[in-house]
Design a protein around this nucleic acid. Structure first.
Lengths: 209, 209, 209, 209
DNA sequence: AATGAATGAGTATTCATTCAT
DNA sequence: AATGAATGAATACTCATTCAT
């Protein structure tokens, strides 16, 4: 029905369609029929090019994740100060989510809820968390006297920060009117001030009741 | 085949089974057959007592949410200082999640990924976020000179904190070995110190590049 | 829940409920649950008193049919002139249908559409058709010279008349505002005049084309 | 498993099967499984081409009704005398019913007993009744002096006639040995003579008792 | 290369019917 | 006598996946 297109182009069309449908319906409720229809192509083509529904979903997942990572990486100048790195990373991150809301929903919601894909996703997050952790560590090293607790505390903090960022991103994905730049500012603000204080040795302790 | 039990008892059995299965498989992949089997009862009973799969899921959702809220409320002494309130709330929260990992997965993952239930869930979160926001506000009022920015900044902060807590809770849910008390300490630590600094007027600003 | 009632009374309550529900939903769509509920009694009681769904339906069928027959029989004075008999019979018939619309629907529609009960019903109709046929024959004998065709022509006419009456009755069942007396007049009018003419030897014939 | 056939062909096969099964079992008792099996095709095809059970039934209903109407229309010469029109119409009608007994059972019995389809059917009947009524009116106009009562008497008569015809048709549908031509003659005979007499002003009246 | 035709396998849901109390 | 509890069996409907053309 459509004119012949080189395989790579077709594949991207299909992936676009798949991301859109997966985002709208969720993995299970999405039907290969609808995906094919949205892609403007017949179902057997989808199978021929991208395999099983699961494989298709995984491919979507990886494409979106890769794009996200690349977008963030492109926004950060590795040589700059840690807080600038973080700031630019967050800007890039929220900007990407704001521009690819469907993709984010697939990544953050669908992939997470399907036990089958959780592993794949966990790996991706782990890599991100590590990057953030090493950023924190770098900031700490740069700061004068900071001696923050045990070594995996950086990881824990990073984990919590990533969680907070994802949560804001998720909210952003559902609110067309929100300005990604604004979200980034908020996040940066509260993350960095908190982190800074922590890194300077301020600690909260439960007091004897 | 099994003994006759009064309705209330059976309903709880069924809900337990449902939470377990929903948690393991996700909403769509969970089958009413499996739920009935796990509950040790025949499918028609599930329908008779708890209705449609959707209704069943909603009932699970609400039961778990209610329990969670009650657990947290029971842990907090309303008259205590804000940081103590927060600390006790977080302890209760993580303790609950640690003790009801299945329930948490249902709440946090499955409910979120199904467009159909997202609304219900969003409402619950909103209530929590508001509580946290008012805690922050209370802390701010109690502190001497703090005059933090705009009024909805409390909300934004609360939102991010809740996101971070959920993220840690989610991680907790998947790691049997993690000690909830420890998770709570980490969370409290970095939240409170950050918040405290923020509330005292420290702000991070992007610098001219 | 209800107070103890003698069996016969209970049975009538149940049959009333059953007729109502069967009429509203049709045989298949009617559920024993609803029947029990409408009867204000528990399901096992229905089974205990009236047996299977099929048996229950048959019992309804027979009760309604019997009542109808009796009502008609009560309306007719056997010694009167044929046309008067017919007239009174029709009046009684339409009056009954008007007063028992539910029962009529069960008899005429549901019973007919269920292959399983068609036989039972066919028998009842056969008896009615015969009565009408003998009425016609009586009228013919009474009339002076009439010599209508072959013997089973009375039956055929009767059959058609009964069909027409049923059709009008069916229409009556669905129109609350229609006056049964009026329906009876119409029917009588066109039946009798037609019959009269036929019985006097007037015949329509296809003409050579 | 079976040969690939173009959609249009398969659809007709399915409709044939559906009419047969609906006729034999009734709407509710008919199972999509059986219909598919009789059609020699798998169930999903039935759903793909003809939709829901209800939609399938409606499609059957309309196909049979359309065919019936067309058969009758084809039999009647519009320019001929009213009685000839009626006669030819009846011949065509009974011939059709005799040749499509299954279809008639679906139309007349099943559709009528399902409250859900009664409306659709009522509309069709209404159109037929009107045609007959206008035939009667035409005959009346043609006849010399006739001045039959009120205007809707034509409708009432037509209604009763149609009921009678349906009743005979229904009987015909269940009796393989009956000759449709013969049925038509009987019907015509008693209808026309009766109508003729009526139209000439003969009226039956209840006498003072 | 591309697709309409086709299906096996599964899932939610309902209902007549029966026990245990 | 009366009922809440319980189920076996069925049925409509869907969907990922594959062929034949």
């Amino acid at each position: 029905m459509l004119k012949r297109l080189p395989r790579v182009v077709r594949e991207q069309q299909m992936l676009d369609a798949a991301v859109q449908v997966f985002s709208r319906r969720g993995f299970h409720a999405a039907s290969m029929d609808e995906i094919a229809e949205v892609a403007g192509i017949s179902k057997p083509m989808v199978y021929a090019y991208l395999g099983t529904k699961e494989e298709l979903f995984l491919t979507c997942l990886r494409r979106e994740a890769t794009r996200l990572m690349e977008a963030v990486a492109a926004g950060v100048r590795p040589a700059s100060r840690p807080d600038e790195q973080l700031w630019n990373g967050l800007r890039a991150f929220f900007a990407f989510v704001g521009a690819h809301r469907d993709g984010w929903r697939v990544l953050y919601r669908q992939a997470r809820s399907e036990p089958h894909f959780a592993g794949e996703l966990a790996g991706m997050r782990a890599r991100i968390v590590e990057v953030v952790a090493s950023l924190l560590e770098g900031a700490c090293a740069q700061a004068e006297a900071a001696k923050p607790a045990r070594p995996d505390d950086f990881l824990a903090m990073a984990y919590a920060y990533v969680g907070a960022a994802e949560s804001l991103a998720d909210w952003l994905a559902d609110h067309e009117e929100e300005d990604p730049e604004h979200t980034a500012t908020r996040m940066m603000n509260f993350v960095w001030v908190g982190a800074d204080a922590l890194l300077q040795g301020r600690v909260w302790r439960a007091q004897a009741e």
